[in-house]
């Protein structure tokens, strides 16, 4: 990876960093922070699903682990929230490695892998909902104590910048994966696992690396969620909604691309706000559109929004040369 590879990322993040300067409305900033959290979770999914071709239907397992770790470490053990945040991401990596070790070692792939990840997330949800340590069904409330060293800020802008910085860091990480030997091996596993193995790629190690990174990134999104909303319960942290969001954004934006998850998350949540404005407060209407969009994306735009843009740019270029 050279410096030129990350120039577009630096430009994009710098431009986005000015948003809170111009927009100070809380509702808009809320929307933006939430969208960035989703984008981060989706970036995690994209490393494993987009580059590695292993479709997890249970990324809630990582998101929830991050969220609960961040909340419980400070509430139950009095650990500083910034340190809790870091431990949360590491916990997500550990859960990722463990789930990966168990399922990849047994040779699970495709639908079976999707199912087993779904089941792991459900087990964690049921446990978190029942155990006393996690607050049971009542969840965990993080005490409001607005101090920067406490990871709580007066302005929503500060949170926006932290979320943006994390998204930017993962963009760089994803770019590095794309350019690295590890990334090439990961794509080889996606395209043809047997051939990759025959060429000497240690497929188990490569997949384990991907799911560990993936778990860490999605767990970081979970930590951020807990820290922003100051509340976690089992159906939020380990709920299927976040697994679905993490799948949708990369597919709509562009599977296996660096910017895909971010573009997808912004497009989906922008659309969801528009539907809510248009249809009023009918519950479920925005998700109904998401579902339809997923089918449409697979049917008509398998490379997502980025793929459509690239194709239309190429068509324009061709028209100009003609």
């Amino acid at each position: 990876m050279t410096f030129r590879d990350i120039v577009p990322i630096i430009v994009l993040i710098t431009l986005l960093a000015f948003v809170p300067v111009f927009i100070t409305a809380n509702t808009v900033l809320n929307f933006l922070v939430f969208t960035l959290i989703i984008a981060l979770a989706a970036q995690g999914w994209n490393i494993l699903g987009g580059f590695g071709g292993q479709f997890s239907f249970g990324h809630a397992a990582f998101f929830g682990t991050g969220a609960y770790a961040a909340a419980l470490l400070q509430v139950r053990l009095g650990i500083n929230p910034w340190i809790a945040f870091a431990i949360g991401a590491v916990a997500g990596a550990a859960v990722g490695w463990a789930i990966g070790y168990l399922s990849f070692r047994s040779g699970l792939r495709g639908s079976y892998f999707a199912l087993v990840t779904l089941a792991f997330a459900e087990v964690l949800r049921i446990l978190a909902n029942a155990a006393a340590f996690t607050g049971g069904a009542a969840g965990v409330l993080i005490k409001l104590d607005v101090r920067p060293e406490n990871f709580q800020f007066e302005s929503r802008g500060a949170f926006f910048w932290i979320a943006l910085a994390l998204v930017g860091a993962v963009l760089v990480l994803t770019r590095w994966i794309e350019r690295s030997r590890f990334g090439a091996q990961l794509v080889a596993v996606r395209e043809n696992e047997a051939a990759a193995k025959a060429l000497g790629v240690d497929t188990l190690r490569v997949k384990l690396g991907a799911i560990t990174l993936s778990g860490a990134v999605t767990a970081a999104a979970g930590c951020l969620y807990a820290q922003y909303f100051l509340y976690v319960d089992a159906s939020i942290a380990y709920g299927t909604w976040i697994s679905v969001e993490a799948i949708l954004a990369p597919i709509v934006g562009g599977l296996g691309t660096v910017f895909g998850p971010l573009v997808g998350a912004v497009a989906l949540h922008g659309l969801s706000e528009i539907t809510k404005l248009a249809a009023g407060s009918v519950p479920g209407i925005d998700l109904m559109v998401f579902g339809g969009l997923l089918v449409a994306a697979v049917a008509f735009a398998p490379e997502g929004i980025l793929g459509l843009l690239r194709r239309s740019a190429q068509a324009k270029g061709a028209a100009r040369h003609a």
């Binding site: 679905v244 799948i247 009918v282 479920g284 109904m288 998401f290 579902g291 339809g292 969009l293 997923l294």
Partner: peptide, 16 residues
């Protein structure tokens, strides 16, 4: 993915 999309669409259409 298509069946996942269908499931989300049907479930939320029923919710709506």
């Amino acid at each position: 993915l298509v069946t996942l999309g269908l499931s989300i669409a049907i479930e939320n259409a029923l919710l709506a």
